[in-house]
Design a protein around this nucleic acid. Structure first.
Length: 235
DNA sequence: GCGACAG
DNA sequence: ATCTTGTCGC
C-alpha cells in the first residue's frame, strides 16, 4: 500500500517464472561480507496471516530493540494484500511489500535486522532475508525455523549453544544453531552485508531464554497483534 | 516420474 | 502461517 524507490520487478513479478529470474538477478547483489558500522539498534521483522481471510491480507510488523538490553523501543505495523499465494522459494514476493510499508513508518531505522526466514540458504540464493536486505540495502540476517534446502552436517548435538554447518550441493549455505536444549534448531544464513560468522554471532547475542532470538520473537508477537487489532479479520 | 518444499 | 488447553517431561 506504499510506493517504493525500487524497480517493480523486484517486488511485483508478473508470474512465478519471472519471479525466479528476478531472484537469480537480485542474488548477485547480495553482499556476503560485513559492511556496516556499529550496531546500536537491532531490528526484527515478521508477518502474520489469517488462513480464512478472503482478502488474503499480510499483517507485517517491524520492531526495533536497544542494545545490549534487547528491549523493544519501537514497533511499526502495516497491512497489505498478498500479491500471490505462498509458494516455497518465493516467500519474499508475498511478504516484503507489507514489510516495506511497516518499515516506512519507523521513526528510527535499526542498524541490522533479523528476518524470520532464510537468507542465502535458498534455491537461488535469495531467501526473504536476502531479498529484503537488498531492497532496503540494510544489513540483514536470515533466521529460519526449518530447512528449505540442504541438510545439517555433521549432526547437531543436543546441547544448547551448539552449531553445525548447513550444507547444500557441497556448499556452506548457513549454520544450524541450537539456541535451546530440547528445541528444534534455528537455521541462520547471510541476509545482506554480513558474513556468516557475524550473522550467527548476532543471533546468539540476541537470544535469551527462548528458542527464537528476541527481535524475531517480538516481531512475531507484534505481527499477531496487528492482525488481531485489524477490523474485519476475526477468528 | 516421484518426493520435498522458509512462512 | 493458523486452528488451540491441558498436559507430559526436563
Amino acid at each position: 500500500m506504499t510506493d517504493h524507490p525500487v524497480p517493480a520487478e523486484w517486488l511485483h513479478p508478473p508470474d512465478p517464472a519471472s519471479a525466479r529470474r528476478a531472484q537469480t538477478a537480485l542474488a548477485e547483489r547480495v553482499v556476503r561480507e560485513d559492511a556496516f558500522g556499529e550496531v546500536r539498534l537491532l531490528g526484527g521483522v515478521d508477518v502474520s496471516n489469517n488462513r480464512f481471510d478472503p482478502e488474503q491480507r499480510v499483517f507485517a510488523a517491524v520492531v526495533v530493540l536497544s542494545l545490549p538490553d534487547l528491549r523493544v523501543v519501537e514497533t511499526a505495523g502495516a497491512v497489505a494484500r498478498a500479491a500471490m499465494p505462498y509458494v516455497p522459494g518465493l516467500l519474499g514476493f508475498r511478504e516484503i511489500p507489507a514489510l516495506l510499508a511497516a518499515w516506512e513508518k519507523l521513526r528510527t531505522k535499526p542498524d541490522l535486522v533479523l528476518v524470520d526466514g532464510h537468507g542465502i540458504a535458498h534455491p537461488r540464493g535469495l531467501g526473504i532475508a536476502a531479498h529484503l536486505g537488498v531492497v532496503l540495502d540494510v544489513p540483514a540476517v536470515g533466521v529460519a525455523k526449518s530447512i528449505l534446502v540442504g541438510a545439517p552436517d555433521p549432526p547437531l548435538p543436543e546441547e544448547a549453544g551448539t552449531e553445525t554447518p548447513l550444507l547444500w550441493r557441497g556448499e556452506r549455505i548457513g549454520t544450524a544453531l541450537r539456541t535451546r536444549r530440547r528445541a528444534n534448531p534455528l537455521y541462520v544464513s547471510i541476509g545482506h552485508r554480513v558474513s556468516l560468522d557475524t550473522a550467527v554471532a548476532w543471533v546468539r547475542r540476541a537470544t535469551g531464554g527462548y528458542r527464537l532470538p528476541e527481535p524475531t520473537r517480538q516481531a512475531h508477537l507484534a505481527a499477531n497483534a496487528v492482525r488481531v487489532a485489524e477490523a474485519g479479520s476475526p477468528r
